[in-house]
Design a protein around this nucleic acid. Structure first.
Length: 701
DNA sequence: CAAAGCCGTTTTTTT
DNA sequence: AACGGCTTTG
């Protein structure tokens, strides 16, 4: 093993020299790889000297501050160093709140900060996502809004079934307003701060007026089930702050400093919460890049970051425009591309790294050939030792795209991980078990109740369930309540009545089992009591399938076990919250696989904040990127797609390969595809209306 | 009450 | 093409 002492000022030429002089006879392949690896490490870790702009962002500690940070400019590093610096200057760690976009980012930051500055485990800065922060507040305070503190967090499929129920109840035909449309509409409103009562006033079309009525019913349903949906987590906290100023005061005074990463993705509610938390001390530092705002569909508004200086008078503004991530050739493409967007702060990323391979653009016959060739090409890179699997990522726009690539990768025996997919939680067995647990935690949860009340079959038929639900809805109470009412039970036959009683007893057993904590043994015992093995047996056609299904059950058990290991106080409630908010604890398998060296497959959205030496961006076709849904509106929607493409390009450190297919199959039919406009824009084959006039920073009002 | 079969929809992106 | 909800049948 050769040790190369890496310190400031070590260049790759120097490393090359050292390698050649070393007593080992490196073949070219190995030497080449070592140099690449070392250069990367150099750029990643050995860039500790902050540049002037970064230094200012880290050292100006009080008052509002806006950090406009381009891709790869060391954004996360600045936040981390800033937190460490605050602590170093004597701020008590637990008085600092940092908000990140994903749970993973929060964990990473937590770790980085503790690396920079030693800390008492009891006195740490709070680093979390908006959603976890809000859950914490709600669990303590939600009674002020008439909810039970044992509320469950509904997932999207529960949301959909609630929408279906509501529409049926108010007799809206599918042709008028489909459940899915209602779900989107409600989420759209909630993300923009529209409460049920206000919906009627903002509704413009007939559809939306019906939607407004359904929205009110939907919200009543949630309260009846003791449930909140994702959007409620934020909305209810905002409501709580308005309704109970003392709670707002209490929450706001917990912190003296507030830092927010990815500020360009803030929506109206988050913005309002941020204001509430920071208006007293005004020590708010937001970091973001308007060019990377890609969550408009969720109500994120670039306007918030553009307006920051107006909202917080006296705010200092710092721009980080040096890019340490990508080679110059890649950055050039990114800069040319993003210049096509009209409404943005005008900034150009300046490469800290020079030269680099020219990005390739490749065209294929169809999506099969695209996958074949892409995988072949990366297989060569791996076999030559130029890169390891973990250095390579394949980025795509929609979730149906990776299928073909998966097949190819398996064929070539190349390890891979699909990041950000929740497919594990889509499996029936997993959903079932989680529903069982949710019922134990909160028996009012009707969607979960419907899912498991009769699986395995225990004599409670659909008809019975229907009657129970109707009775409950009429009375405005939870299904669980009417199941215990002797009056209603008397309407059922004796065997049905007994079946219901047995089920109630089952839930009681669960409550007892999980009273203190949830762990491997508790869950195994519970599954036994539920006779869930019977259900697996019943739904499987053969031995093989049965084993496959049972293995997902075991995976859930393992997840619980690892949760139990990690948590100081592993309650059922915490477990369910974790699962609802992010699969982070569950994703540890993925992390392990990644450590084990695998090619990453992920959507452009999921790739934000990550970087890879080699990036394959696939499916660059009109209709996919930009997606055809956004082409209907042109303008801002296409600009967002362009930002998405920009995010993709700027993930690449050393090599970028852009590809497209000329035909593509969808639902069994073959469609002709045209190359994405972004391809032409990137390579300067498209006129840029914005580049003629000298642009200044966008008007901020 | 349970199982089998039919019909219609779905695919943009996610905490 | 695949899945879930609904209806029919046993």
């Amino acid at each position: 093993m050769v040790k190369v002492l890496i310190h400031h000022g070590v260049t790759s030429t120097r490393i090359c020299y050292l390698l050649q002089r070393s007593p080992y006879s490196w073949d070219t392949k190995t030497a080449c790889y070592l140099i690449k690896k070392t250069t990367l490490i150099l750029h990643k870790t050995m860039n500790p000297a902050l540049n002037d702009a970064q230094k200012r962002a880290v050292e100006t500690l009080s008052g509002p501050m806006l950090v406009l940070a381009g891709a790869g400019s060391g954004k996360t590093r600045v936040v981390t160093f800033r937190i460490a610096n605050l602590i170093r200057q004597g701020i008590q760690p637990s008085r600092i709140l940092a908000v990140t976009f994903t749970k993973k980012a929060a964990q990473e930051m937590q770790y980085r900060v503790s690396e920079l500055i030693p800390m008492d485990p009891e006195d740490r800065p709070e680093i979390s996502t908006f959603h976890s922060l809000c859950v914490r507040i709600l669990r303590r305070q939600i009674e002020g809004l008439g909810y039970s503190p044992r509320f469950t967090i509904m997932d999207t499929s529960d949301q959909a079934s609630t929408c279906r129920k509501v529409l049926r109840e108010i007799r809206v035909a599918d042709s008028t307003l489909r459940p899915r449309d209602l779900q989107h509409l409600i989420s759209h409103w909630k993300n923009r701060g529209v409460r049920p009562a206000q919906a009627a006033t903002v509704a413009a079309t007939d559809k939306e007026h019906i939607g407004a009525i359904a929205y009110r019913r939907y919200q009543e349903e949630l309260i009846r089930c003791g449930a909140v949906d994702f959007d409620d987590l934020l909305l209810l906290v905002d409501d709580l702050f308005v309704k109970c100023p003392e709670i707002k005061q209490q929450e706001a005074s917990r912190f003296d400093h507030l830092l927010i990463d990815e500020y360009q993705d803030t929506n109206a509610i988050q913005y309002s919460i941020v204001r509430a938390l920071a208006e007293q001390h005004r020590n708010i530092c937001v970091v973001g890049d308007d060019d990377q705002s890609i969550y408009g569909f969720r109500g994120s508004e670039v306007q918030h970051i553009l307006n920051f200086p107006k909202d917080w008078p006296g705010a200092s503004e710092i721009r980080l425009e040096a890019n340490y991530r990508s080679v110059a050739t890649i950055l050039e493409l990114a800069n040319t591309l993003i210049a096509f967007n009209k409404s943005r702060y005008d900034k150009i990323l300046k490469p800290a790294r020079t030269g680099g391979k020219r990005p390739r653009i490749e065209q294929f016959k169809d999506e099969d050939q695209e996958a074949e060739e892409v995988v072949k090409s990366l297989a060569i890179q791996i076999s030559r030792g130029e890169w390891n699997p973990r250095d390579i990522a394949i980025l795509f726009r929609t979730n149906e795209q990776p299928r073909v690539f998966e097949q190819e990768l398996r064929k070539h025996d190349i390890p891979y991980v699909i990041l950000g997919s929740k497919s594990f939680f889509d499996r029936k067995e997993v959903k079932d078990i989680l529903s069982y647990l949710r019922i134990v935690q909160n028996p009012h949860d009707e969607p979960s109740m419907r899912r498991i009340i009769n699986s395995p079959p225990r004599g409670i038929s659909n008809a019975t369930v229907g009657k129970l639900i109707d009775a409950a809805t009429d009375r405005g109470v939870a299904m669980w309540e009417v199941m215990q009412s002797p009056e209603i039970l008397s309407e059922f036959s004796v065997p049905v009545r007994n079946a219901i009683r047995n089920f109630i007893a089952l839930v009681a057993t669960g409550k007892q089992l999980f009273a203190d904590m949830i762990g491997r043994q508790e869950l195994q015992k519970f599954l036994q009591v539920c006779r869930y093995d019977k259900e697996v047996e019943r739904t499987s056609n053969d031995q093989e399938e049965q084993q496959l299904r049972w293995s997902s059950v075991e995976e859930v058990v393992n997840t619980v076990a690892s949760f139990n290991d990690k948590q100081k106080n592993p309650t059922l409630e915490k477990f369910l919250d974790e699962i609802a908010l992010a699969a982070s604890d569950i994703d540890e398998d993925k992390d392990k696989q990644l450590d084990q060296d695998a090619v990453a497959l992920l959507t452009l959205h999921a790739s934000k904040g990550l970087e890879y030496p080699v990036v394959y961006m696939v499916g660059l076709e009109e209709g996919i990127l930009p997606h055809k849904r956004s082409l209907q509106f042109e303008g801002e929607a296409v600009d967002e797609e362009r930002r998405l493409a920009y995010v993709g390009v700027t993930r690449a450190q050393d090599e970028l390969i852009l590809s497209m297919a000329l035909t593509r199959r969808k639902w069994g039919r073959v469609y002709e595809q045209i190359p994405s406009r972004f391809l032409f824009e990137m390579i300067g084959q498209s006129d840029n209306p914005n580049s003629y006039k000298k642009k200044s920073a966008v008007e901020t009002r």
